Structures are given as structure tokens and as C-alpha cells.
Simulated assay, not measured.
Amino acid sequence: MKNVAQLLKLKASQNQQVHTIGPHQMVMDALRLMAEKNVGALLVVEHGEVVGIVSERDYARKLVLQGRSSVGTPVKDIMSHPVITVDTHKNIDYCMNLMTVSHLRHLPVVEDGVLMGLLSIGDLVKEAIAEQADLIRQLEEYIRGG
């Protein structure tokens, strides 16, 4: 089973980039960036440290439903915090369980205080399916005597 470091290397080869925003920027800026980059969440970073995460869900629940303005509201007012993170040594099962239990769609990877990447639930499911398919192939070869 792959660990987070190995999965991030696979993502890096596909030129995956982590998009961030500052806590004092306006929600409208976050929405524009999410739309431009076609992502559902942005990490909120201040002085190089992950201090929150803002998602489309945060926008809908904490801004729209409360009748607030995305133009005059800073990201810090609607971001989710504290942020649950993992280090590069955790395995995919651990991450999937953490995301399921915590109802997360995005999981920042932080090593020694440095942001290393961002995993989505889709990244983890894709890799879990690939690993299961490989195991099935290996078992079929074993059964055939190959």
C-alpha cells in the first residue's frame, strides 16, 4: 500500500498544484480563484502556515444561507479551522478513514510545518481502486500458476 509521499509524487507527475488564499482576502476572491482553477477548496495560508481551508460548502453554508456578502466578507470568517492534516508517512487507508470519519473532502499534507500537497477524496479512491485491481491481477496469476 502506498503512503502519502508516494501518492504526492504521482500527483506531482501530473502537475497538480495546491492553490492557496490569505485569510484577509475576500470570499469573492476565493470564489474567483476556485472557478479559475476548477477546484472545490483552497487552503488558507498565513505566514507560510496552513490556518484554514475554505470550500464551496463553507461558502454555501456560512455565507449564502446567512445572507452575507462575498464581496465584503473575509475568508477567515467562513473558513474551516483548525485544519486536519496528515504527514507524508501515513498510508492511504489511514487517510481514507480519517476523511470518512471527519467528513472531509480535502486533506492537506504537512511535514514539519511545511505544506507538501493536498489530497482529495477522489485521489485516494482512485489509488485504492488501482491497488485493488493490481491485487486481483496478482491473485489471478497465482491461481493460474503463473
Results as ranks from 00 to 15, higher is better:
1 M>N: 07
3 N>Q: 03
3 N>T: 06
5 A>C: 07
6 Q>E: 14
6 Q>A: 14
6 Q>C: 03
8 L>N: 01
9 K>V: 09
11 K>A: 07
12 A>H: 14
12 A>Q: 15
12 A>V: 06
13 S>W: 11
14 Q>W: 10
16 Q>G: 10
17 Q>I: 15
20 T>G: 04
20 T>K: 06
21 I>F: 00
23 P>G: 04
24 H>E: 14
24 H>Y: 11
28 M>A: 13
30 A>E: 03
32 R>N: 11
32 R>H: 13
34 M>R: 05
34 M>I: 03
35 A>L: 13
36 E>V: 09
36 E>P: 07
37 K>W: 07
38 N>F: 05
38 N>L: 08
39 V>M: 02
40 G>N: 02
41 A>Q: 05
41 A>I: 05
41 A>D: 03
43 L>W: 01
44 V>N: 01
44 V>M: 00
45 V>Y: 03
45 V>G: 03
45 V>D: 04
47 H>I: 06
50 V>H: 00
51 V>D: 02
51 V>N: 02
53 I>C: 04
60 A>S: 13
60 A>E: 08
62 K>T: 07
62 K>I: 08
63 L>M: 12
63 L>E: 07
65 L>G: 06
65 L>F: 06
66 Q>L: 15
69 S>D: 05
71 V>A: 11
75 V>Y: 04
75 V>D: 02
77 D>N: 12
77 D>T: 11
77 D>R: 12
78 I>W: 00
78 I>C: 02
79 M>W: 00
80 S>V: 07
81 H>K: 15
82 P>S: 02
84 I>M: 04
85 T>E: 00
88 T>V: 10
93 D>G: 12
95 C>R: 07
96 M>L: 15
97 N>A: 13
98 L>H: 01
98 L>W: 00
101 V>I: 13
105 R>A: 09
105 R>Q: 12
106 H>C: 04
107 L>G: 00
107 L>W: 02
107 L>M: 04
108 P>Y: 06
109 V>W: 02
109 V>G: 02
111 E>G: 07
111 E>I: 04
111 E>D: 15
113 G>F: 01
113 G>N: 00
114 V>M: 08
115 L>G: 01
118 L>Y: 01
119 L>K: 07
120 S>N: 05
120 S>G: 15
128 A>N: 13
128 A>T: 11
130 A>R: 15
130 A>L: 14
130 A>V: 12
131 E>F: 11
133 A>R: 14
133 A>I: 10
133 A>D: 13
137 R>P: 07
138 Q>L: 13
140 E>V: 15
140 E>Q: 15
143 I>M: 12
144 R>N: 12
144 R>P: 04
